[in-house]
Nucleic acid binder design. Structure first.
Length: 175
DNA sequence: GGAGTGATGACA
DNA sequence: GTCATCACTCCA
């Protein structure tokens, strides 16, 4: 099988990484089993000025991970209930990440973390087999015409400029 | 449509 | 220390 994507994959512009992640396989290894799911939905959070990004508030203990090196996990807790899985992108000291919003069979960012048993324990970890969580190339190259670009979800508070950016990527197979 | 839930950051 | 806010999901 294919190998985990190297950190160099994530050391690129965030939007490009987000789009390329569509169709890749999210792999979770635990309890002696390895599960693979195709990524079907992802969102980009990019830079200091993106008001929808936690990093726009500056460098804090929570957002520190987003400023770190690419290819790591950024996992945080929201609404007192849900875990979110992000992958850090871009260079060191530049805050950016891609939120994995959905995988095949499990739409919804909080549902997939629940299904895969992803919690704070996996925050700020390198995506690798050692971690038990990584991403591989997908079985088929996804054509850009099969990827929809839409506004991000749940970020109206960020104002019209940032909430309207088409930084959400969704796989839409056409048959 | 609205509740639930607790970490986080802002302010003092 | 307090307070408001939240990158969501579920049930009505």
């Amino acid at each position: 099988m294919s190998k985990p994507l190297p950190s160099s994959f994530f050391d690129r512009p965030t939007l490009q990484v987000a789009e390329d992640l569509i169709g890749c396989m999210l792999v979770r290894a635990r309890d002696g089993k390895t599960e693979r799911y195709m990524i079907t939905e992802a969102e980009a959070y990019d830079g200091f000025d993106d008001l929808a990004s936690h990093a726009s508030k500056g460098r804090t203990p929570r957002t520190e991970v987003m400023f770190g090196p690419p290819g790591r996990t950024y996992i945080y807790f929201v609404y007192g209930i849900h875990w979110m899985l992000n992958v850090v992108t871009g260079p060191q000291d530049y805050p950016s990440a891609v939120l994995i919003r959905g995988i095949e069979g499990i739409p919804g960012p909080a549902r997939l973390t629940k299904a895969l048993g992803i919690t704070k324990d996996l925050n700020n970890m390198i995506l690798s087999k050692k971690t038990g969580l990584w991403i591989e190339e997908g079985p088929a190259k996804i054509s850009s015409s099969d990827i929809q670009k839409t506004p991000r979800i749940g970020v109206d508070y960020a104002g019209p400029i940032w909430s309207k950016k088409l930084w959400r990527f969704v796989l839409s197979r056409k048959n």
